[in-house]
């Protein structure tokens, strides 16, 4: 059984006050996420990530398509008891202390008072809020609030956890902590579906990612598959100021700095480039294969349509 199955889910909002025009927030989206996966849901702001999450949480009604979580339809209480959700930039009830807030959410998820009494202190320890357990949330920093948010989403030991931009607005330390937490959750066998526009996080954590842009799914796959598809390049550095004639034919980018030259050539032309250097008698200092980052991939995916989108009147 897949953890999450999304089948042709779409959403069209009417916009405007008087004459409502339809605006497509999400074109039909199909995705399957297996149990135990960390799945990254990537896209720039406004790509439709939050809309998708809200539909999965039953907050927004889809205009078409269906989805199942843990094999059950959306809105099924038996399923909802087994999932956790952290919305984007949560505030929570700031009149409560973390202890009270977690107890409240635990009760809503169906924990008994006894279970809640046992689990809440555990969870507070786990997210490092033991000392602040009885301070009202209105006095919390953004990073602390995010920890409370993660705590509430995993308190009832859910099988699937949905995190909307869990790292946004956090300082480097905070981001590191959240990353560690997500990795721990994976070790516990949980499925994690998180959306982000910060690529390095996705790159470091995800088994698979989906790239969403302007409400449309562009690509799904393992991080390595996606990056290899774009084709790697090699960085060559040699001493001297000469650039062999053959390099321009290879499509290389060359930069001369001081007494060295740095050239980027496609992976496929590695042999030809080395041969050219040898012929000229130039001394190679270094050869580095450059791994294409998700960022490059992301830019290559997103750019063209942004240009067309921007070109529309």
């Amino acid at each position: 059984m897949s953890a999450i199955e999304i089948l042709g889910l779409e959403k069209t909002y009417p916009v405007g006050f008087w004459r409502k025009r339809p605006k497509r927030a999400l074109k039909p989206l199909s995705l399957t996420i297996e149990e135990g996966e960390i799945f990254g849901f990537l896209g720039p702001n406004g790509a439709g990530k939050t809309t998708t999450l809200k539909m999965l949480m039953g907050l927004v009604f889809p205009s078409g398509g269906t989805a199942r979580i843990l094999g059950r339809p959306i809105g099924d209480p038996a399923m909802q008891a087994q999932i956790g959700f952290l919305p984007e930039q949560p505030y929570f009830y700031d009149h409560l202390t973390p202890r009270e807030l977690l107890t409240y959410y635990g009760q809503l998820s169906g924990l008994t008072t006894k279970e809640a009494e046992r689990k809440v202190p555990e969870m507070l320890d786990r997210v490092g809020l033991r000392d602040a357990a009885n301070v009202q949330l209105r006095k919390f920093s953004k990073g602390m609030l995010q920890r409370v948010g993660i705590a509430q989403s995993i308190l009832h030991n859910p099988k699937v956890v949905f995190l909307d931009e869990p790292m946004s607005g956090l300082d480097p330390m905070g981001r590191h902590e959240v990353r560690d937490l997500i990795e721990q959750l994976k070790h516990e066998g949980k499925t994690i579906f998180f959306s982000t526009h910060i690529l390095s996080d996705a790159e470091a954590l995800c088994d698979r990612v989906a790239i969403l842009h302007l409400g449309e799914l562009r690509k799904v796959g393992a991080v390595a598959d996606l990056t290899s598809a774009i084709g790697g390049r090699i960085e060559l550095v040699w001493r001297g100021a000469t650039i062999p004639q053959a390099f321009s034919a290879l499509g290389a980018e060359c930069h001369a700095t001081g007494d060295t030259v740095r050239a980027l050539v496609p992976e496929s032309s590695q042999e030809a480039a080395m041969e050219a250097l040898r012929r000229e008698g130039l001394r190679l200092i270094s050869l580095t294969p450059l791994r294409t980052s998700l960022e490059d991939y992301f830019v290559s995916q997103v750019k063209p349509s942004e240009a067309t989108a921007g070109g529309k009147p």
């Binding site: 539909m55 039953g58 009604f61 339809p73 959306i74 809105g75």
Partner: peptide
């Protein structure tokens, strides 16, 4: 998910 028919 649709608005619950029973509730409606």
């Amino acid at each position: 998910m649709r608005p619950s028919r029973t509730v409606t």
